[in-house]
Nucleic acid binder design. Structure first.
Lengths: 151, 151
DNA sequence: CGCATTTCGGATAATGAGGTCTTATTTTCA
DNA sequence: TGAAAATAAGACCTCATTATCCGAAATGCG
């Protein structure tokens, strides 16, 4: 698996927040229901996202979570690193510590190139751009296969 | 992590076997020592590799494991699929089941392209080619950082 | 104030990957 | 035939991730 469950959940949740373009806070309960992610686990994930300053939260009625910064400035790379660390974009594909130009493993050159492209993919993508495309193209963030008609 | 520990170990072990170009069988003990991989765990991994027909084994003195086929016909892709399955090359980066052209997630198009490149990287590389480069360029398969002088 | 709503945070459980240990089985060779 | 060498295979342990549960703390509102 490329990304951990936590990271997949976190990305989807922030994309959802961004695509909603709703003023104020969105409750974890709402996100949990809409994206079919465990409520309690989502709480844990947002504790991390809050801690690194990607989101903020508000307790009490009409509380919830919200993006802490302009979504145009938040890259998916930031989110991945916050939740999974940067190993994916740094480590040897064979797990050899210290693998690099000086002491390369057999896959180093090709993997390093692939790794950089992967990093670029996540660095280029912002929450704002992702949200725009999601709204325009009706991309889905949920696990449901039927069209989710607004009630 | 892109590949599981098992998969990293399996790839390194098969690359080692191929690069050794030794007639007959190589004992797990030898591979374990040379690559600094747990002996018992390596045994488990070769049970899988034997089962799928990538390697064969022989018990008793002068026994061990060996490649079951011409290394020029064994791709790294085969090894990865045997040990980690093909999810990495098939699944949605956000973990959404059924994500595809029909019901894409926001990252689908870019990820699908990246995923295909990744698959190609592993499909193009054969054990024979990897072994040749490893011998010629003195690539390393071990975790040690000092040059391993032949005794 | 008092109550409902909501996140916070610690404790706890479940799961699977990673790793170890032990015994059985096969093979070679003296 | 017996001992040694080697893989096979099942049982078991460990740990991080994933997930759940519950009480505490904060917030808004009548």
């Amino acid at each position: 698996m490329l990304l951990s469950n936590s990271c997949e959940y976190g990305l989807r949740a922030l994309m959802y927040l961004s695509a909603e373009e709703q003023e104020g806070y969105v409750s974890l309960r709402t996100i949990s229901k809409r994206l079919d992610i465990s409520f309690a686990f989502l709480g844990k994930i947002f504790q991390i996202l809050n801690a690194v300053g990607l989101s903020t939260s508000q307790r009490g009625p009409s509380g919830g979570v919200a993006l802490a910064r302009d979504p145009a400035t938040i890259t998916l790379y930031e989110v991945v690193v916050a939740l999974d660390g940067e190993d994916l974009f740094r480590e040897c594909v064979l797990g050899l510590p210290g693998c690099g130009e000086r002491q390369p493993c057999p896959m180093h050159r090709e993997w390093a190139q692939q790794r950089d492209q992967l990093e670029l993919l996540f660095r280029r993508a912002t929450l704002a751009e992702t949200a725009r495309e999601t709204r325009e193209q009706n991309y889905r963030l949920t696990t449901l296969t039927n069209e989710d008609a607004p009630e």
